[in-house]
Amino acid sequence: MATGGRRGAAAAPLLVAVAALLLGAAGHLYPGEVCPGMDIRNNLTRLHELENCSVIEGHLQILLMFKTRPEDFRDLSFPKLIMITDYLLLFRVYGLESLKDLFPNLTVIRGSRLFFNYALVIFEMVHLKELGLYNLMNITRGSVRIEKNNELCYLATIDWSRILDSVEDNYIVLNKDDNEECGDICPGTAKGKTNCPATVINGQFVERCWTHSHCQKVCPTICKSHGCTAEGLCCHSECLGNCSQPDDPTKCVACRNFYLDGRCVETCPPPYYHFQDWRCVNFSFCQDLHHKCKNSRRQGCHQYVIHNNKCIPECPSGYTMNSSNLLCTPCLGPCPKVCHLLEGEKTIDSVTSAQELRGCTVINGSLIINIRGGNNLAAELEANLGLIEEISGYLKIRRSYALVSLSFFRKLRLIRGETLEIGNYSFYALDNQNLRQLWDWSKHNLTITQGKLFFHYNPKLCLSEIHKMEEVSGTKGRQERNDIALKTNGDQASCENELLKFSYIRTSFDKI
């Protein structure tokens, strides 16, 4: 039985969820670079991206490699990797027998973001014989899940209580170790020597080791999670996991709180800001991140802002960003909400898709409305799209047979046209069989910064309504002859009103 693990408890099935942008060198404390989270699957090609990484700022997932063999891993080693800020997950990587050479110096898994409450997941690794993470000293947050690894031993010899604050939620089941077939031998045991430290858990006094050649490092209890030197002297209180010299914040392997210019500090002093819960960055760093993602459509890219001495992905609820200094300031009234469309555009074809934009005031991208039916549609669209004030790209209304009016965009005031449909149009209306009105132009103002209007096959939309939009939106004169079809717009509506004058002759039985 794995020490510190839980057996036999019912657990939810383990679901495996399925960018080499360097964020800056980590400095003297770390020998390499800070790398983003990685999802490495199918083959070993991307694994080489770990070569210079000291910190993975995010998670590391290595999974679904069915053609790899043990010899493929023999020359692979990433000794610079010290810390993973989120979680480490391995799933069905064939041929991998140990992690001792792959990650010989991995010391800390912070667990800032977890995989279903777990910071370390080893699942269905069919050839893994031992973990071998002999320098792993601290899992700051989260638990361990090690399950269905039929060859995995050296679990009962690990004292997880020396690595985690609590072992109650560890789930370590259905491994070879369960069948008591392992016969784990710690260093020196074969020669009758006791080389590794022994600890007591559940009444068992057991030597602690990761492999037959690597003991588990056990520091004096007084050192807590700070770690200790090879001689057993406690590291500085700002260290986490390990250090090369005692009581020196510049000799830590990793930091308990924050890293700044080669030393570990309790908090980031001005003019620095907390970033990702582990390091200090200056304003320029946060500003660069903001600008890199301002026009990016890459998933996970955030326009970072500053709030409460932190550089964070977005302002919290009730705050909006001051564009001059990136500071989050309290909103006066309802907060603006910028919604970034991942692929640059979004099609609204149902109430469900409209709900995804609920509360958005600025759309960074283009909207395509293609709704053919739905219950209580006008009210639903207004509830979900009615706060949109600005669209950076274009607005396209296409084959939306259920629409009679666009009044559900009740606050839309600006279409920038930074991206144009077919390279020309910022407003595009095609084949809307029941569209009769755009907006009530006596109450609604709309500016279209650039781009043209396109109207074709809107049989109940009168040309007068379209011409009014040209005047109000500032697009009059931009359109070419064929942009607004004269014969297919309003051709099934009563669009022309003329005053009919009647004269009559009164007659009676005795007068003409």
Rank of each mutant, 00 (worst) to 15 (best):
L136C: 05
Q216V: 12
Q216F: 12
N43T: 07
N117A: 08
Q204P: 11
P336R: 07
N52A: 06
R162P: 10
N135R: 07
R113C: 13
D169K: 13
D288I: 08
R256G: 03
A119E: 00
R145L: 11
L81F: 01
L114N: 04
R110N: 03
G142E: 01
E71Q: 03
F258I: 02
N149Y: 00
N309Q: 08
H302A: 10
F285R: 02
E314C: 03
P187F: 12
T229I: 10
T189L: 10
C252A: 01
G232H: 07
C215S: 07
L133I: 12
P336K: 06
P269W: 01
L96W: 02
F116T: 06
R298T: 12
R263L: 00
C328A: 00
G32Q: 15
Y87L: 00
M83E: 12
N322G: 06
R298G: 11
D248N: 04
N179H: 11
C219Q: 01
A254L: 10
N52S: 10
G183Q: 03
K310W: 13
F115C: 06
W278I: 06
L152P: 00
P249W: 02
C264M: 01
A119L: 01
R263G: 00
M321L: 02
R297S: 08
G111F: 01
N149V: 04
D165M: 12
K129Q: 10
P31V: 07
G188T: 05
V253P: 02
N175T: 13
S213P: 13
S237A: 12
N308C: 02
I185E: 04
N170Q: 06
H302G: 12
C311T: 00
Y304I: 04
H290G: 07
G241W: 02
V126T: 12
Y87D: 00
G58P: 00
N149L: 00
P197M: 11
T250C: 03
A198D: 11
H226Y: 15
D169N: 11
A156G: 10
P270C: 02
M321T: 09
R298E: 06
Y259M: 11
V144Q: 01
T199C: 12
R69P: 07
C315A: 01
D178C: 09
Q299L: 07
G132Y: 01
C255L: 00
D177V: 07
Y273T: 06
P70Q: 09
T85R: 14
C328M: 01
I62K: 00
L131F: 10
Q303R: 13
P270W: 11
Y319W: 15
D288M: 15
F66T: 05
I222L: 05
W160S: 01
C255I: 01
R297P: 09
G142A: 01
T329C: 04
S112R: 12
I222M: 04
L99H: 00
Y118K: 06
G318L: 05
N135T: 10
C243D: 01
A230E: 14
P220N: 06
Y259I: 07
G203Y: 08
I139F: 03
R110D: 00
D75A: 04
D277Y: 13
R74Y: 08
S98Y: 03
L174P: 14
S143H: 13
P269E: 00
F116L: 10
K294N: 02
C264R: 00
I146S: 02
S284A: 13
P313N: 06
V121R: 01
V108A: 03
L89S: 02
V253Y: 10
E207T: 14
L136K: 01
S324G: 10
F283T: 10
K217A: 15
L332C: 08
S284V: 07
P70M: 11
I109Y: 00
L64D: 15
P271R: 09
H212L: 14
P36Y: 07
P70W: 14
V253A: 06
V305R: 05
P187I: 10
C234R: 02
S213N: 07
H28C: 10
D184G: 15
L131W: 01
F285Y: 04
N257L: 03
K191L: 06
D248K: 03
E130S: 08
L99F: 08
F78L: 05
